Computed example of a mutant assay.
Amino acid sequence: MTTSTYRRSPARRPWVRILLTGLALWLLTVAVTFLTGNPNLIPTLVLLGSFLVPVTFVVWAFERRDTGELTPTLVFSTFLTGGVLGVLGASVLESYLLRPSPWLFAGVGLIEEAVKLLALAVLTRHLAVKSVRDGMILGAAVGFGFAAFESAGYAFTALFTVKGLSLMQLVQTEVLRGLLAPVGHGLWTAILGGVLFSASTRDHFLVTGRLVLAYLGVSALHALWDSMHSIALVVTLLLTSTPGQLDLLSQGWMPEPSPAQLQSFTILYWAGLALVAVVGLAWLFGLWRLSHRPSRTPPAWRIPTGSPPLR
Rank of each mutant, 00 (worst) to 15 (best):
P243R: 10
S198M: 12
S200I: 00
A190N: 02
L47P: 01
G153Y: 03
L47I: 04
L287I: 12
V55W: 00
T71P: 03
L93V: 11
L97P: 12
M228C: 10
G89R: 02
A11S: 12
L287Y: 01
E256T: 14
L249W: 08
E174G: 14
L104G: 00
S151I: 00
G68I: 14
A90N: 02
L180P: 01
T29Q: 06
K163N: 15
E63M: 13
V278Q: 06
V171Q: 05
D247C: 07
A121I: 07
A260C: 02
G153P: 05
P304F: 01
D134T: 09
A274H: 08
Y154G: 01
P54S: 07
L138H: 03
L275W: 00
L35D: 15
S166E: 12
I42P: 05
P298E: 03
A282P: 00
Y96C: 13
L88V: 15
A31C: 11
G286L: 06
W253A: 14
Q251R: 15
G89Q: 09
S198F: 07
W270I: 04
R302F: 06
D66Q: 11
S50R: 05
S295A: 08
L179F: 05
L213T: 11
V132I: 14
L221P: 03
L127E: 07
A121K: 06
L27D: 02
A155C: 04
G153S: 14
A31R: 15
P14I: 12
A271W: 08
V212N: 11
T36G: 08
L196S: 01
R12S: 09
L246A: 15
Y96F: 12
L287N: 06
P14C: 06
P255H: 09
S291G: 10
L196I: 13
L237K: 11
Y215V: 07
V218H: 01
W283Y: 13
T2R: 10
F62D: 00
L88S: 13
L221Y: 08
T44R: 06
L233N: 04
R64P: 05
V59G: 03
A190G: 14
V84A: 04
M168E: 14
L179V: 15
H292P: 01
L213S: 15
G280C: 07
